[in-house]
């Protein structure tokens, strides 16, 4: 009895180990492609994407990739996370040097399917409104006195999205030298206890 169970477990463990080794490289590549695609989508064409760097502020640590053209950083792809309705909502936000949002993309999202999860539909009005979102406009949903049109029946997701974008813009402004400190909104992008869960 014990022998049988042990044998079955051993065989299964061997199969899993083998599978893990076989798929390790393809999985790494697939994840890398997703990341690359998301960075490429949020930055202007014809720029060279630099290596991953990070900057710390009260709101947490932000990872970003500088976009370099002719030896000068012209934009930043900032990874920014805010708490949505169903957990952390992680975005890649491309911000030009002057603080204008170039484009956004969703890295991970656990919002309600059919409601908040609509923030993943890249052609929707909610998403396209962020393209070229000027530094003069307020990155908050209209309900909170900002200029972002929320997704119908998904204010919390929309708020989280706007907050993540706004934090990314703050990071980019700091990196570009037009702000002295990273002015991330209170209600920090990632609360202390949630850090590292993402």
């Amino acid at each position: 009895m014990v022998l049988c169970l042990t044998l079955v477990c051993l065989v299964c463990a061997a199969v899993l180990g083998g599978m893990y080794a076989l798929t390790y490289e393809p999985i790494r590549k697939a994840n890398e492609n997703i990341l690359k695609a998301s960075i490429g989508a949020v930055l202007p064409e014809g720029v060279e994407i630099g290596a991953l760097e990070s900057v710390s502020s009260d709101g947490g640590t932000f990872e970003y990739y500088p976009a370099v053209k002719d030896g000068e950083a012209v934009a930043y792809a900032v990874k920014s996370t805010a708490i949505g309705f169903g957990g952390p909502l992680s975005l890649m936000v491309g911000v030009l040097k002057d603080g204008t949002v170039f484009n956004t993309s969703v890295l991970s999202c656990t919002e309600t399917p059919g409601l908040g999860a609509k923030c993943q539909e890249s052609g929707s009005h909610f998403r396209t409104q962020f393209q070229g979102f000027g530094a003069d406009k307020v990155l908050k949903v209209t309900k909170d006195g900002g200029d972002v049109d929320a997704i119908t029946a998904s204010t919390i997701t929309s708020r989280a999205y706007a907050l993540a974008v706004s934090n990314a813009v703050a990071v980019a402004k700091y990196l570009a030298g037009s702000a002295e400190a990273v002015d991330t909104a209170s209600g920090a992008s990632v609360p202390e206890e949630k850090k590292g869960e993402e």
């Binding site: 169970l5 079955v8 477990c9 299964c12 199969v15 899993l16 599978m19 893990y20 798929t23 393809p26 999985i27 697939a30 994840n31 492609n33 997703i34």
Partner: peptide, 19 residues
């Protein structure tokens, strides 16, 4: 154990080829 093994194999394969 057998079922869990197949499920994990499926999960790894999906992660690798149908992200």
């Amino acid at each position: 154990v057998v079922i869990a093994t197949f499920v994990t194999v499926l999960q790894l394969v999906m992660q690798a080829y149908t992200p």
